[in-house]
Design a protein around this nucleic acid. Structure first.
Lengths: 253, 253
DNA sequence: GCTAACCGAGTACGTTGTACCCAGTTATAG
DNA sequence: CTATAACTGGGTACAACGTACTCGGTTAGC
């Protein structure tokens, strides 16, 4: 019913797993592992996609694999590190994503934003746990490397390239958090966006009618004041940001 | 050692508590409550400030108050709702904040951003749980109402005012998440930002040296590519965003 | 075939949220 | 003043979860 999760374990252990060479364990005594790390992570992702992050526990993942809870600890040091692996895998760009390139810097960054939005839509649990500094695995780096293609042939300092990409990600994540979260099958309502705001409305109306919050009252009288949703809100912020970026280096054209 | 928490409980219950008229319970039989809701929330906030969100559990809060765990449930329906209350209280602007106004729209929005950043710095646990659509309590609305002063006297649609403020908040939250999180007293290292990146560096270097990630390799060779921190990164994104906003309505002057 | 390293999986414990309960307290009605 | 009813503090207890420990079985290399 309620609530688990922060977002990350010991990053040193997570990094070790993320960057492990899988070929390194041939020709050793002992039985072959029944599962692979990939399998465990993929199962956990599928479960989280289906039932939300609250339902993701070690017993459930083990059940899904047809084994006992402790078996998972042969593959992963703990739940927190499993979550780190899940994040990296779930955000790894697909080959088709990698093949798609924007025709200019701006279009490329929009593709980055839209693709990230799609990731959040496909894996809403990402939004419930991507808190903490990011753990950079192969998936994240692949995505980052792809994002950097936006600036190929342009004379923009590396530092600023990083800042711009980070900015795009902040904007997408912030908008996704407000509009996209949850709606997992076993969270009780209000769980959709409209239910959520419907629950708040009476309080907001009462607050606006009282004397406090005068500016809020003025704003909420306009009919369409809150009538933006999802991608639209994200694109608004993103476009303004990119306008500013374009002006800064006179990149427009 | 590890990890609890998602960010919110049943919003209907949270809203009821947030907007409750405190005077309503005079002249009723039964003993007077030993604590107030404010006291419980303030204690929980103090504990989270001191020890981080992982250490925040009902027993610890109760201990702090000198009572048993179950007593808290006289004031709050559950832990998740307590967290909602903590968020609203911790982000409520102080009277001094409210008295400060930017001299134009842009300066005002910068004040909003910097103030929000300061909130995150004072209460890092906010970043570990502000996931989910926001629950609007008196504190949030006071802050929002104050933020809207940026647009007084300007002819900007209410809808766009909302979008702009939401955008600013996304930018600040995203930057804060990358640069400000954790460092709570009982999380094990790597917990500071530099420790964090130091742990990742060997893997990043190896990845850059391998043939994959060619653009990443090019970027990381520049010395100062990653030498931005905290507020600086936030201001970069924010300034570009505000440049774009200013151009859109020809607000610059 | 011996051996050593390794795997699967059961048992069990500590932590945490919280349901349930009862005894004590106090405003109100008679 | 007394009885009553609504409320309170806080103890006991349980369920869910992460995971430490352990043991019996399996397999590659000598």
């Amino acid at each position: 019913m309620s609530t688990p999760q922060t977002g990350a374990g010991d990053p040193r252990r997570s990094l070790e797993l993320l960057w492990r060479e899988d070929g390194a364990q041939e020709g050793r005594p002992g039985p072959k592992p029944r599962f692979t790390l990939e399998q465990v992570v993929a199962t956990a992702i599928a479960l989280a996609d289906r039932s939300g992050v609250a339902a993701l526990n070690m017993r459930a993942v083990a059940d899904e694999l047809g084994t006992g809870p402790m078996t998972l600890y042969r593959y992963v040091p703990g739940k927190a590190e499993l979550l780190d692996l899940m994040v990296d895998r779930a955000t790894e760009p697909s080959p088709e994503d990698l093949a798609t390139v924007g025709s200019d810097w701006r279009e490329h960054l929009v593709l980055l934003a839209e693709g990230t939005w799609d990731d959040f839509a496909a894996h809403p649990w990402l939004l419930e746990l991507n808190q903490r500094r990011p753990v950079m695995g192969p998936g994240s780096l692949t995505g980052f490397d792809w994002a950097l293609r936006a600036f190929e042939g342009l004379d923009i300092p590396a530092r600023d390239q990083n800042l711009i990409i980070t900015g795009v990600m902040s904007i997408v994540t912030g908008a996704a958090r407000d509009h996209l979260i949850a709606d997992s099958s076993d969270t009780p309502p209000p769980t959709t966006e409209s239910e959520w705001w419907a629950a708040q409305e009476p309080y907001l109306v009462r607050a606006a009618e009282g004397g406090d919050y005068p500016r809020l009252a003025a704003v909420t009288t306009e009919e369409d004041a809150w009538s933006f949703h999802g991608r639209e809100a994200m694109r608004f912020t993103l476009d303004a940001f990119l306008d500013g970026i374009g002006a800064r280096w006179a990149l427009d054209g």
